[in-house]
Amino acid sequence: MDKKTLVLGVIGADCHAVGNKILEYGLTEAGFNVVNIGVLSPQEDFINAAVETNANVIMVSSLYGHGEIDCRGMREKCKEAGLNDILLYVGGNIVVGKQNWEEVYDRFKDMGFDRVYPPGTSIETAVSDLKKDLHI
Protein backbone atom coordinates (compact mmCIF):
# COMPACT_ATOMS: atom_id res chain seq x y z
CA MET A 1 0.00 0.00 0.00
CA ASP A 2 1.23 3.49 -0.83
CA LYS A 3 2.10 5.85 1.98
CA LYS A 4 -0.55 8.46 2.67
CA THR A 5 0.62 12.03 2.15
CA LEU A 6 0.12 14.81 4.69
CA VAL A 7 0.79 18.51 4.24
CA LEU A 8 1.95 19.92 7.55
CA GLY A 9 2.68 23.51 8.51
CA VAL A 10 2.20 26.41 10.88
CA ILE A 11 -0.41 28.86 9.62
CA GLY A 12 -0.46 32.64 9.47
CA ALA A 13 2.10 34.86 11.16
CA ASP A 14 3.02 32.07 13.60
CA CYS A 15 6.72 31.17 13.69
CA HIS A 16 6.65 28.33 16.24
CA ALA A 17 8.89 25.79 14.52
CA VAL A 18 9.81 23.28 17.25
CA GLY A 19 6.40 21.61 17.55
CA ASN A 20 6.14 21.50 13.77
CA LYS A 21 9.42 19.58 13.51
CA ILE A 22 8.36 17.20 16.29
CA LEU A 23 5.11 16.51 14.44
CA GLU A 24 6.99 15.94 11.19
CA TYR A 25 9.28 13.43 12.89
CA GLY A 26 6.49 11.57 14.68
CA LEU A 27 4.25 11.37 11.61
CA THR A 28 7.14 10.24 9.40
CA GLU A 29 8.06 7.57 11.94
CA ALA A 30 4.41 6.42 11.89
CA GLY A 31 4.74 5.74 8.16
CA PHE A 32 3.30 8.85 6.54
CA ASN A 33 4.81 10.86 3.71
CA VAL A 34 5.03 14.31 5.33
CA VAL A 35 5.33 17.45 3.22
CA ASN A 36 6.31 20.11 5.73
CA ILE A 37 5.76 23.62 4.39
CA GLY A 38 7.20 25.15 7.58
CA VAL A 39 6.12 28.22 9.49
CA LEU A 40 4.53 31.55 8.52
CA SER A 41 2.36 29.75 5.96
CA PRO A 42 -0.80 31.19 4.42
CA GLN A 43 -3.74 28.95 3.55
CA GLU A 44 -2.75 29.05 -0.11
CA ASP A 45 0.61 27.40 0.63
CA PHE A 46 -1.13 24.46 2.34
CA ILE A 47 -3.60 24.11 -0.52
CA ASN A 48 -1.00 24.44 -3.29
CA ALA A 49 1.21 21.83 -1.61
CA ALA A 50 -1.77 19.49 -1.25
CA VAL A 51 -2.67 19.86 -4.93
CA GLU A 52 0.94 19.38 -6.06
CA THR A 53 1.48 16.26 -3.94
CA ASN A 54 -2.01 14.77 -4.20
CA ALA A 55 -2.16 14.85 -0.40
CA ASN A 56 -4.78 13.06 1.65
CA VAL A 57 -4.64 15.40 4.65
CA ILE A 58 -3.78 18.99 5.50
CA MET A 59 -2.57 19.37 9.10
CA VAL A 60 -2.58 22.94 10.37
CA SER A 61 -0.70 23.92 13.49
CA SER A 62 -1.04 27.22 15.32
CA LEU A 63 0.41 28.19 18.67
CA TYR A 64 0.16 31.97 18.80
CA GLY A 65 -3.59 32.02 19.36
CA HIS A 66 -4.81 33.40 16.05
CA GLY A 67 -5.55 30.09 14.35
CA GLU A 68 -9.25 30.80 14.29
CA ILE A 69 -8.72 33.92 12.20
CA ASP A 70 -6.06 32.28 10.02
CA CYS A 71 -8.21 29.20 9.28
CA ARG A 72 -11.45 30.90 8.29
CA GLY A 73 -12.55 29.95 4.80
CA MET A 74 -9.98 27.19 4.36
CA ARG A 75 -12.50 24.44 3.58
CA GLU A 76 -14.06 26.62 0.90
CA LYS A 77 -10.65 27.37 -0.64
CA CYS A 78 -9.87 23.63 -0.65
CA LYS A 79 -13.09 22.96 -2.56
CA GLU A 80 -12.29 25.74 -5.05
CA ALA A 81 -8.94 24.02 -5.66
CA GLY A 82 -10.63 20.66 -6.27
CA LEU A 83 -9.73 19.22 -2.87
CA ASN A 84 -13.28 18.23 -2.02
CA ASP A 85 -12.39 15.13 -0.01
CA ILE A 86 -9.20 16.25 1.69
CA LEU A 87 -9.12 15.80 5.45
CA LEU A 88 -8.47 18.99 7.42
CA TYR A 89 -6.87 18.72 10.86
CA VAL A 90 -6.02 21.64 13.13
CA GLY A 91 -4.39 21.78 16.53
CA GLY A 92 -2.41 23.68 19.09
CA ASN A 93 -3.17 26.91 20.87
CA ILE A 94 -5.68 27.88 18.20
CA VAL A 95 -7.54 30.69 20.00
CA VAL A 96 -6.61 33.62 22.20
CA GLY A 97 -7.15 33.28 25.94
CA LYS A 98 -8.88 30.66 28.03
CA GLN A 99 -12.02 29.82 26.08
CA ASN A 100 -14.48 26.99 26.56
CA TRP A 101 -12.92 24.10 24.59
CA GLU A 102 -16.27 22.67 23.47
CA GLU A 103 -17.20 26.03 21.93
CA VAL A 104 -13.79 26.33 20.23
CA TYR A 105 -14.11 22.77 18.93
CA ASP A 106 -17.58 23.48 17.55
CA ARG A 107 -16.41 26.66 15.78
CA PHE A 108 -13.62 24.80 13.98
CA LYS A 109 -15.92 21.91 13.09
CA ASP A 110 -18.36 24.48 11.65
CA MET A 111 -15.45 25.83 9.57
CA GLY A 112 -15.10 22.38 8.01
CA PHE A 113 -12.23 20.87 9.99
CA ASP A 114 -12.47 17.10 10.42
CA ARG A 115 -10.32 16.96 13.56
CA VAL A 116 -9.67 19.72 16.10
CA TYR A 117 -7.03 19.21 18.78
CA PRO A 118 -6.42 21.18 21.98
CA PRO A 119 -2.97 22.12 23.24
CA GLY A 120 -1.02 19.13 24.55
CA THR A 121 -2.57 16.51 22.27
CA SER A 122 -0.17 13.63 21.72
CA ILE A 123 1.19 12.61 18.34
CA GLU A 124 -0.16 9.14 19.08
CA THR A 125 -3.70 10.54 19.19
CA ALA A 126 -3.26 12.21 15.81
CA VAL A 127 -1.73 9.05 14.31
CA SER A 128 -4.60 6.94 15.62
CA ASP A 129 -7.15 9.38 14.16
CA LEU A 130 -5.31 9.49 10.83
CA LYS A 131 -5.38 5.71 10.59
CA LYS A 132 -9.11 5.67 11.35
CA ASP A 133 -9.94 8.49 8.94
CA LEU A 134 -7.74 7.11 6.15
CA HIS A 135 -8.89 3.51 6.72
CA ILE A 136 -5.39 2.12 7.23
Rank of each mutant, 00 (worst) to 15 (best):
D2W: 06
L6E: 06
G9I: 12
V10Q: 12
V10K: 06
I11N: 01
I11G: 01
I11Y: 04
A13H: 12
H16W: 06
G19K: 02
N20V: 08
N20S: 12
K21M: 13
G26H: 11
G26R: 10
L27H: 05
A30H: 03
G31N: 05
G31V: 08
N33F: 10
N33W: 07
V34W: 05
V34F: 08
V35R: 06
V35A: 05
I47K: 00
V51G: 03
E52N: 14
E52S: 14
E52R: 11
A55M: 08
N56T: 06
I58L: 11
V60P: 02
S61C: 14
S62V: 11
L63C: 08
H66L: 07
I69V: 10
D70G: 00
C71N: 01
R72C: 09
G73M: 03
G73A: 03
M74L: 13
M74D: 03
R75L: 08
E76W: 06
K77I: 06
K77G: 07
A81H: 02
A81C: 05
G82W: 05
N84E: 11
N84R: 00
D85E: 15
D85P: 01
I86P: 01
L88S: 05
L88Y: 05
Y89R: 00
Y89E: 01
Y89L: 14
G97Y: 04
Q99I: 09
D106C: 06
K109E: 13
D110P: 02
G112D: 10
F113Q: 06
R115C: 13
R115N: 14
V116K: 00
Y117D: 09
Y117V: 13
P118T: 11
G120V: 12
S122I: 10
I123Y: 11
I123A: 09
E124P: 04
T125A: 11
V127K: 00
S128T: 13
L130G: 02
